[in-house]
Design a protein around this nucleic acid. Sequence first.
DNA 1: CCGTTCGTGTCACTCGGTGTCAAGACGCTA
DNA 2: TAGCGTCTTGACACCGAGTGACACGAACGG
Lengths: 214, 214
Amino acid sequence: MTYAPWRYHRRVTSRPAVSLAERKRQLVVDELTEAAFGLLTTQGFDAVTVDEIAAGAGVSKRTFFRYFASKEDVIVRFLAELGAGIRAELAARPASEPPSAALRHAVSVPLAACGEHGDRALRAVQLILRTPALHARFLERQAEWHEGLTAELAYRLDRDPAADLYPRLAAGMALTAFGTVLERWSDSDGAADPTALTARAFAVLAPALDAPAA
Amino acid sequence: MTYAPWRYHRRVTSRPAVSLAERKRQLVVDELTEAAFGLLTTQGFDAVTVDEIAAGAGVSKRTFFRYFASKEDVIVRFLAELGAGIRAELAARPASEPPSAALRHAVSVPLAACGEHGDRALRAVQLILRTPALHARFLERQAEWHEGLTAELAYRLDRDPAADLYPRLAAGMALTAFGTVLERWSDSDGAADPTALTARAFAVLAPALDAPAA
DNA sequence: CCGTTCGTGTCACTCGGTGTCAAGACGCTA
DNA sequence: TAGCGTCTTGACACCGAGTGACACGAACGG
């Protein structure tokens, strides 16, 4: 069984909407991800070489780097869709909603999906948060989400992100909430409820997010 | 490498506040930093090897790594004290001050110092913000500051950082402001006033930072 | 049947980073 | 002034991440 992306299951069509080559590529990605997860989560990030991961998936080191930009990428990719999800969710929220509510939903949807998926996601998050190299890459990704969220928010509120500090600050607040919830959830070994934590976090942030003069 | 001739004169006459070895070490650090700055800012981060930096300072590659943990470190070190400064400033603020004012001062002091320092600091910041590898390391450092600020804030407000989300969120907000100001300052090539930007940013954040129910 | 394209493995290479060791500079003491 | 322990350094070997070049084989189209 391939690893299951937590967001939405890929639609199985009777016709091959995707080519054979495409499915083969996906197969290699899955195999590589599987091998990386098994090795990295049990032995630690630094104790495993790319050669070993590649061997575990039955391919060469060179092929590994044709699919992943770096050794960190294999793990961090797991959370990449999360970031894209945040922006997509924000874009889908009704325009009438105040920023705090819209951002709370945007953040909590991927977070809840992450919480439901359980063990795999939890181990990924824990590995990332306690491995410096992975943490750095994760933060890098988060900085990209920051850009995207800022743009989306500026568009949504019809503000100029170059002159106005609010969009970037609001996006930063939302991501701070995101990171805080993720950390709590990780530290509690998945026991804490991401949605409840998110609600609590945004209760703190709301006065600034929804301030009329902001 | 150039040795200062005057250092041989002070044998026993004047007691050395810092040892000779200490000053030699500092000299190497300075030389290395100087060489790294000259090369990295003109040719780009990836176009310069550690060997070249070391050669520019007249030492070996091995010695470079005895002074700096990584190639990124030589640049990011520049901003390390900034982070420590934020926490120190916060600790020095009177307890009567509301969080938004205390954090604003804590952030703006190092930021202003950075602005005054002029060219060198500006080039460092610009290099960091536009080089992915450096940016990642910078964010890593910032995550450490986040921990420290959270602890300091929890202590200051007598809150339990394990149960209460506020300290971590407030620290995150302050650092978001910090990052935003830094980015604006960098993009404006140093023309923008860090203190004014900081004030504007905290005006946005204040409703959440000072909310009574938070 | 042939030519093209694509994915792959192999090889060689660069560069960041580390462990090891011998040599030199310095401070201290006799 | 000689001797000794400490600290720093450079030289060297080594590992692992990441890349470029190239040749090989499978799939596809004519």
